[in-house]
Write a protein that binds this DNA or RNA. Structure first.
Lengths: 211, 211
DNA sequence: GTTCAAAAATGTACCCGGTACGGTTTATGC
DNA sequence: GCATAAACCGTACCGGGTACATTTTTGAAC
């Protein structure tokens, strides 16, 4: 890699870091892109040349690729098995976090801004559509079922992620949160596999209200 | 109702109708709120006094209230039963459409604008959160399960709605689409109740790939 | 070390959605 | 008919995002 591309990456990282710090200090809406650009020593146009929108400054790299997990699953593995194993191992190795503080800042910033939550949800929707396409190739000839499955899987995955991030954002130690995440993964996928009636028998049998 | 409020409703409807017509003619992004205001004979400020954002001109009244269906379900009915019956009867009476042409225009406009699709998804998310709260009161002491259920239910409902709207937007006669919707409702709720393993036995048993 | 083309960065001016504000019309209740 | 409050308006402004023409930087070839 030449000097050129190294400098580009450096600039990009500087912009993102400055933005995240400012957002964390003063809130997403209270920081303008002009301020970020100035603080990063760059023109506004240049900033938008690196990040197409303001929210991309925070959400970049957050999107997962459920479709790829399904498409690249091992021989004899069902999509659901592959996904369960993926999140199981992710919980086990603590999400492979490299920079904990940066991750926490991101979670804080996203969680405290409706605009960023909206962007996050938009990404989830996009994951859902892609997953539906991947499942459509696994179960051909039944588009609706594939879309229904994709919707339910995406909902499950995003729910447990949200719970995990909420825990670490509210100060729970990462190790503890990871352990809980592992349990949540199994619960979520059991629910996916066996349906909501599973709740009645498996979990809430003490409650008179039936499913 | 006095003259004042009658005029207000009239103005509001005029603005919404003009907006929908312009969007349908030229596309959502290609129409500015200034144009809408001018075409409706009103100031921009007044328009934003009636509709807080541009997308509300189209999406107003679209949001459903799954939480209310759960909260107001009949005695002895489970949340899932209540929801299934709700959508079953909605499919049966053809969604109780009053103005078909206006509905079609709305569906066309929303479906052809990424921004409006985003707004729609945001509403779905909001429905999901509200449903999670309602389910949290039905199944107390297990927040995660309630959230997982809410996510899956919302995903199912929005998926079949999207399929329905896609059909009528692509010219399928409303009666035919309604009949198909009825089938989709049962499929979706069966899948919700029995889990994704249901697909293997019930629907795709001819395919070697297992769930 | 000079030169040259491509890539990157910049400044400016602009568009559009949305808001703040102060002033003007209009319906309503007395 | 009159006072009042609500609705309406014009204008100016803000912030995100884009178009465009210009300048700076960079890698490489000579």
């Amino acid at each position: 890699m030449g000097l050129r591309e190294r400098k580009k990456e450096q600039t990009r990282r500087r912009i993102a870091e400055v933005a995240l710090r400012l957002f964390d200090e003063r809130g997403y809406d209270a920081v303008t892109v002009n301020e970020i650009a100035e603080a990063a020593g760059v023109a506004k146009v240049t900033l938008f040349n690196y990040f197409p929108t303001k929210d991309c400054l925070v959400t970049e790299g957050v999107k997962e690729d459920l479709a790829a997990i399904v498409a690249g699953r091992g021989e004899g593995r069902s999509p659901l098995q592959a996904l369960r194993e993926h999140y199981r191992s992710m919980a086990a190795r603590g999400a492979g976090v490299v920079d904990v503080e940066a991750l926490l800042a991101r979670v804080r910033v996203i969680g405290s801004s409706p605009a960023l939550m909206g962007a996050l949800h938009a990404m989830h929707m996009s994951e859902r559509y892609e997953l539906a396409e991947a499942l459509g190739e696994v179960y051909p000839g039944d588009d609706l079922t594939a879309r229904l499955m994709a919707g339910q899987i995406t909902a499950a995955v995003t729910t447990i992620q949200e719970a995990f991030f909420h825990r670490i954002a509210t100060g729970e130690p990462l190790e503890e949160a990871g352990r809980r995440l592992a349990g949540d993964v199994e619960l979520a996928f059991d629910l996916l596999e066996h349906g909501l009636t599973y709740v009645k028998e498996g979990i809430n049998h003490e409650k008179g209200d039936q499913l």
